[in-house]
Write a protein that binds this DNA or RNA. Structure first.
Length: 427
RNA sequence: GGGGGGAUUCCAGAGCGGUCAAAUGGGACGGACUGUAAAUCCGUUACUUCGGUUUCGAAGGUUCGAAUCCUUCUCCCCCCA
């Protein structure tokens, strides 16, 4: 199955320029996807693009991952209703390093002709002067053409308007494509559907400047079945960086997908074949409570992103917190073991002296730890029956915890709602 | 330049001198049900030492009492030129 067919059955093909499939079928091609340095880590949303590059490479083509050291300085207006704030260079560099390190995990950089490469567009923009740019690039694309783009049109019609900086963004990105086409023989740019306009500016620029031919291919925006944004939890974004989203939380994110979403995600976010997926879906439908799909997703992706060892820990933690793991299990572990089980879980430390003085639940949960932002909120939730400590519902806000309540003389396990666990360490 | 309208608790949006910590809807969070799902139902949604305390764009003022009235300022929208 070729690359385009693969994307098609997985529902990952939103749009492509005529001739793209034919061009790819002629043999090995080079293609790229750009990643914005808006944060120092990529998130699950970027995972789709990363995996597209992986599929591209598996299909025998040569993938380029572009980090936007230059474009990040400008700010992509696509899909933004407001002008963006510029990032400082320090932050930008920090972010670039972070996402570059992440990208390196996913692609094969040593497999002969189609080895992956990471490029930074700052390298070809840093010495490009403004005058050169408007003469060599600006001259080939009319403002009329640029204004017809959706991302620009919407902003021109709105009250907030658009700065010249963001208006020129598509030219900057368009030139990236030209540069890679010219110097790396890169004939395809891929991306999310919101990137269509920017990508096509690139192919247009290549055509007008050098009479060359290049192609565009986009993937659809992923949405949840209830229409809300993909990739968010109550805690915010789901990041690929283990420091921002622990492997356990990452695993839980996928495990908590609804049935509808899981059936969709399994095609998008795994490398299973069509037959394998169909059999997984059938299996899931026969025994939905086993959540075969969610487990397959969570397991495969945690392993892909964080590695085998982190997956093992995430599974162990999940097993204890949601399985039939009793407190006795925790008690049977030494301190190291407890900390390992709770590795991906928010932790708070308070001193033993303080603890011995005796805190009521409110002080403990809202004052001494930030499990709750205020005592009022903690109280409401305790009264509402939503708070447990050591697996038992806290009967009243006045309940005082003592040394005898500590597991292994050191730990308390607090629970806000059913799924949010916290470890309080007393030492 | 002239005239008019507006800024309310996460969002939308009521309130127009006391009974307003502020209707209603959405979102979020919690509970029940379940499969750590979906749907549904219920509850909570400023802080508090539970006496109170600080909120309705900002600062002053009137009043026993202001989100509500007055003054100035900031920002937004609309109409005319």
């Amino acid at each position: 199955m070729n690359f385009v067919e693969e994307l098609r059955w997985r529902g990952l093909l939103h749009d492509m320029m005529p001739g793209t499939e034919e061009a790819l079928n002629k043999g090995m091609c080079a293609g790229y996807i750009g990643f914005d340095p808006t944060a120092d880590s990529l998130h699950v949303g970027s995972l789709l693009q990363i995996m597209t590059l992986m599929r591209f490479q598996k299909a025998g083509h040569k993938p380029f991952a572009l980090v936007g050291g230059a474009t990040g300085m400008v700010g992509d207006p696509s899909g933004k209703s407001q002008e963006r704030n510029l990032l400082s260079e320090d932050i930008l560099n920090h972010n670039l390093k972070g996402i570059q390190a992440q990208l390196e995990r996913f692609l094969d950089f040593d497999c002969g002709a189609n080895s992956a490469e990471i490029v930074n567009n700052y390298d070809w923009f840093k010495n490009f002067t403004f005058l050169d740019f408007i003469r060599d690039v600006g001259k080939h694309i009319t403002v009329n053409y640029m204004m017809a783009k959706d991302s620009v049109k919407k902003r021109l019609e709105s009250e907030v308007g658009m700065s010249f900086t963001e208006f020129s963004y598509q030219l900057v990105q368009g030139y990236d494509f030209y540069y890679l086409w010219k110097h790396k023989n890169c004939i395809l740019q891929m991306g999310g559907s919101d990137q269509w306009g920017n990508i096509v500016t690139g192919t247009e620029f290549i055509r007008r400047k050098d009479g060359g031919q290049a192609f565009a291919l986009t993937s659809p925006l992923i949405k949840k079945s209830d229409g809300t944004k993909f990739g968010k939890t109550e805690g915010g974004n789901v990041w690929l960086d283990a420091k921002k989203t622990s492997p356990y939380q990452f695993y839980q994110f996928w495990l908590n997908a609804s049935d509808d979403d899981a059936a969709n995600y399994i095609k998008i976010f795994t490398f299973f074949t069509e037959e394998e997926i169909n059999s997984l879906i059938t299996e899931h439908q026969q025994a939905p409570h086993l959540r075969t799909l969610q487990k397959a997703l969570a397991t495969n992706l945690t392993k892909l992103v964080h590695g085998e060892a982190a997956l093992e820990t995430a599974l162990k933690t999940t097993d204890f917190l949601f399985g039939n793991g009793s407190l006795d299990f925790l008690k049977s572990l030494d301190n190291e073991g407890v900390l390992q089980v709770f590795e991906g879980i928010a932790q708070f430390t308070i001193s033993k002296n303080e603890f011995e003085a005796g805190y009521d639940t409110l002080t403990l949960l809202a004052d001494k730890t930030s499990i709750f932002p205020s005592k009022g909120e903690a109280k409401k939730m305790i009264v509402g029956g939503g708070v447990s400590v050591n697996r038992e519902k806290v009967p009243s806000p006045e309940k005082v915890f003592e040394v005898s309540d500590l597991i292994n003389n050191k730990f308390l396990v607090a629970q806000k709602g059913k799924k949010n666990y916290f470890l309080i360490i007393v030492e």
